[in-house]
């Protein structure tokens, strides 16, 4: 049996070096956007919990404010009697709680507010990084959607090698494979559905809009990857024309 101990040493050193060298901006962006999504998930879950809990005290507020962040600022205002007047509730269904019980609710509300701040910081970071790393994609898709596309592809290089029809469907893999496997309806958009331009289009036009947008994103990403000039605004205008 040959002695492989020197070969092993060499391989360990080499593997460590290669792992170290594999770190790149793509990974920063992917981790940041993963974290942002996770934060959103936790915010929503905790906010639901908070609504349930605070409703023991002031049930009417739950129905009056849909937005979680706004709801939290109201909870943190404290005294419900002022809130009652503000929202014109005459007969409150909630029971009176003492300070001790309210304290727990307030703490929860504060933590959730902290999570919202964390997410905002993260999105700011994403915007800055995306603007420096792939300015054209950032203008066309926006920082968060751009980052999600990048994550779906794996790296900017891989995204730049994709055709536009593939870009259009990043984020719709489940529906796509269901379509291929069983012949169900093909998806029209993945992450691009969240894009304001697609959102603003009429429902029947959304597929068309996503296709046009994917087209221009395709161009933008290639410019970014091959370090071309900034053309984001022109490209965006070319898509906006289609919105009618």
């Amino acid at each position: 049996m040959a002695d492989y101990s020197s070969l092993r040493k060499k391989n360990l050193l080499l593997a460590k070096r290669l792992v170290r060298e594999s770190v790149n901006p793509d990974l920063f962006i992917i981790n940041a956007v993963n974290n942002a999504e996770e934060l959103q998930r936790v915010q929503n879950n905790l906010a639901k919990r908070l609504r349930e809990w605070y409703s023991l005290y002031f049930p009417e507020l739950d129905k009056k404010i849909q937005d979680h962040e706004e709801y939290i600022t109201h909870v943190l205002k404290g005294d419900k009697h002022k809130l009652l007047k503000e929202w014109k509730v005459d007969e409150c269904m909630g029971s009176e709680l003492d300070k001790k019980e309210l304290e727990g609710i307030r703490h929860l509300a504060e933590s959730i507010r902290g999570l919202y701040e964390e997410e905002k910081r993260l999105v700011e970071y994403l915007e800055k990084t995306m603007k420096a790393y792939s300015p054209n994609l950032n203008t066309l898709a926006g920082a968060v959607i751009g980052a999600k596309l990048l994550r779906g592809a794996g790296s900017l290089r891989k995204l730049a090698m994709m055709r536009s029809s593939t870009i259009q469907l990043i984020g719709a893999e489940k529906a796509l494979f269901r379509h291929i496997k069983t012949g169900a309806k093909p998806p029209k958009y993945g992450h691009l559905l969240q894009h304001p331009l697609v959102q603003r289009a009429k429902k029947d036009d959304r597929g068309r809009m996503a296709r046009a947008l994917a087209d221009k994103i395709f161009v933008a990403v290639r410019i970014d990857y091959f370090k071309g000039e900034y053309k984001g605004d022109e490209l965006l205008k070319e898509v906006e024309v289609k919105l009618r």
Binding site: Y4, S5, R8, N11, L12, L14, A15, L18, V19, S22
Partner: peptide, 22 residues
């Protein structure tokens, strides 16, 4: 994939008859 080799290296360091290759 660098991500999994990162974990693999830890296993290989403990076991003298394994070597990681990326």
């Amino acid at each position: 994939a660098p991500r999994v080799v990162r974990d693999l290296v830890f296993v290989c360091e403990e076991r003298e008859n394994m070597a990681p290759i990326l």
